[in-house]
């Protein structure tokens, strides 16, 4: 097995690691970097629990090989926590978290949406989060929590 020298930036830190070529990005983030906020749900891209930001775009890390992230900037839920992202507080205040397993994926997706469209409507929020599943079915409060972080609400 030929190891791959992966160079990327994770949560603002430059990383250089030799990795196994069969590692997915999800496995690299969780196992090699110990950032376990990114979850594995379905492994097929249908639940969104594994979302991370790759160069600002939310991607399903279970469907990417780690080597594909070479030269890219990755932000995980831990990165958003460290920068005190308002979405995290909003999810807590609006009681949008039940078991919590899906929440990192929801927050990552919402962060992508609001970075691009800070005044997203409720319909745009719903559309954006359509690829994230919550088995506890707490969608109403999740959408409310994202809505509270819109530009007009923060003023």
């Amino acid at each position: 097995m030929k190891k791959y020298l992966l160079k990327c930036q994770v949560n603002g830190k430059n990383i250089e690691r030799e990795i196994r070529p069969d590692k997915t990005l999800l496995e690299f983030i969780r196992e090699d970097l110990g950032l376990t906020g990114t979850k594995e749900g379905c492994g097929e891209g249908e639940c969104g629990a594994c979302l991370d930001l790759l160069d600002g775009r939310a991607v399903n890390s279970c469907l990417m090989m780690a080597a594909q992230a070479h030269g890219k900037k990755i932000i995980t839920i831990e990165g958003l926590r460290d920068e005190k992202n308002p979405l995290i507080d909003s999810f807590a205040k609006e009681a949008a978290v039940q078991c919590g397993f899906c929440i990192p994926g929801f927050i990552i997706k919402a962060e992508e949406l609001l970075s691009e469209n800070p005044e997203a409507t409720d319909d745009e929020i719903k559309e954006s989060l359509a690829g994230n599943l919550c088995r506890c079915t707490g969608y109403k409060n999740i959408i409310k929590a994202v809505g509270k972080v819109r530009k007009k609400c923060l003023k």
Binding site: G45, G48, A58, N60, A130, G131
Partner: peptide, 9 residues
């Protein structure tokens, strides 16, 4: 076409 995160890929 699928979800917006899959469309990113």
């Amino acid at each position: 076409f699928a979800s917006s995160s899959l469309r990113n890929m």
